[in-house]
Design a protein around this nucleic acid. Structure first.
Length: 431
DNA sequence: TCTGGGGTCCTAGGACCC
DNA sequence: TCTGGGGTCCTAGGACCC
């Protein structure tokens, strides 16, 4: 059996954990640059606010109903996520962290020892609530896809108390019949449209199709797997990792700007900042990159015809995680694509072709003293920034031309303090 | 009329996820 | 005025090889 734990309206729940006055009120959290709604409380959903809606379009509704609006605070959300996952990792045999607010659990063979699975998991849920104030729902089923489906129903049915176990064939059938096709994990907008056009409305109707049909209609093996998972045959294993953190196959750092940037030096500073951040992530997971991509984009919403994005891909001579080296290539890449008077709204750096650090040294005939000293320098840099806060030591290229807010920094008008990760932001209670 | 067959590797692009 | 960011997997098709 697989379990799927999902934090309800996670970002909103994180804000509420530190501001109980927000409980019971409509709350939304906005994406970077205060652009779109990316998390909504139940009350906000009931006002008809949609996921991904641009803030400026719904501003009148927000004001009219006194909706509490917050900028996203990833330092806080990341730390709260770690707390939830850490607890689950301590009680469940295996855990796969799927995203910041979701994880799969392997519950195979637990029942003979722990008795009633629902009671056991309900206790985990209570503990998470007590320790973090983050509400979660848990779905349990024979496959990951069915566990996702069970989780969704657990959220909708008050009687489930946040835990739903699809332990019998009857319950599986019932759950499938309750679920619209577009809510099945792996069915997105295009497939949903395609299925509806063929009068397939529910997960039950989808599960009744043949595997060959699914292969033809839903992208080959992906569709075949999806179908079998709905039918109760597991096709996706848990992908566990020792410390819970997954080793990424690619790493990206991209941002939209508050306003358009045209000067090369401004874009270079932004790109250098993104490259530095990406390199830090790379070293944190012990990888080195073989390919670096830099892109810059103009607004997708203006009158200008596409393409809005220009990118340059550089294959590195050897895999590296050295910020200095990556910055040099990033400059080369940016020079290739930047044009004067561009009015760029977004930029980013992507690292691909990741491999474990150390692998590349084996290829060299003799130990490269300079490379080793560079690696040490990077390790020290990371240590300093870890201790004194992100960006305590930076490269000059990644600094804004003038003091003050960097021009590539987006809007964050309503950001709450990083309560759990900055001394200065710690919650003070006056008595 | 008719232009081999079978592999591998790489990349671009599509679809999906949260 | 204002429209997120960071990932995954798969397929098709081209280049290249014998």
């Amino acid at each position: 059996m697989y379990g799927l734990v999902d934090c309800n309206n996670f970002y909103v729940s994180c804000e509420r954990a530190f501001q109980p006055r927000l409980l019971g009120r409509p709350v939304v959290v906005l994406s970077n640059n205060d652009g779109c709604i990316i998390s909504r409380s139940q009350e906000a959903k009931e006002l008809g606010l949609k996921m991904g809606e641009p803030y400026f379009q719904v501003k009148p509704i927000l004001l009219r109903h006194g909706v509490q609006v917050y900028s996203s605070n990833y330092a806080l959300y990341g730390d709260m996520s770690r707390r939830v996952m850490h607890y689950l990792a301590s009680v469940a045999p295996e855990i796969e962290i799927y995203s910041i607010d979701e994880c799969f659990l392997d519950l195979h063979g637990l029942e003979p020892y722990c008795g009633n699975l629902v009671e056991l998991v309900a206790e985990w849920r209570r503990q998470i609530g007590k320790r973090t104030h983050i509400p979660v729902c848990i779905g349990i089923a024979p496959t990951k896809t069915l566990a996702k489906l069970a989780n969704r129903l657990a959220k909708k049915l008050p009687a489930s108390n946040g835990v739903l176990y699809l332990d019998t064939e009857e319950r599986r059938q019932w759950a499938l019949a309750q679920t619209p096709v577009e809510d099945v994990w792996g069915i997105g907008g295009l497939y949903a449209q395609k299925l509806r056009a063929q009068s397939i409305q529910t997960a039950a109707e989808l599960a009744a199709q043949s595997e060959g049909w699914a292969r033809r209609q839903l992208g080959g093996v992906v569709g075949a797997r999806l179908l079998r998972e709905l039918q109760g045959t597991p096709c996706q294993q848990l992908a566990p990792s020792e410390d819970g953190s997954l080793a990424r196959k690619s790493i990206a750092c991209t941002r939209s700007f508050a306003g358009p940037l045209s000067e090369f030096s401004d874009l270079m500073a932004a790109v250098a900042h993104f490259a530095s951040k990406a390199a830090e992530k790379l070293r944190r997971q012990g990888s080195a990159a073989n390919v670096l991509t830099v892109f810059i984009s103009k607004s997708r919403y203006g009158t200008e015809p596409p393409p809005h994005t220009h990118s340059a891909v550089i294959t590195l001579p050897t895999a590296t995680s050295d910020t200095i080296e990556l910055l040099r290539y990033a400059r080369t890449a940016l020079k290739r694509i930047w044009e004067p008077g561009g009015g760029y709204k977004k930029a980013g750096v992507l690292l691909d072709g990741l491999e474990p650090t150390g692998q590349q040294q084996l290829l060299l005939f003799e130990p490269n003293e300079q490379a080793e000293r560079r690696a040490q320098l990077m390790a020290e840099l990371d240590k300093v920034n870890q201790r004194f806060g992100a960006g305590a030591v930076r490269f000059a290229t990644a600094m804004p031309r003038e003091r003050g807010v960097a021009p590539w920094q987006g809007q964050r008008q309503w950001q709450t303090p990083a309560y759990t990760t900055r001394w200065e932001d710690m919650l003070c209670i006056r008595v």
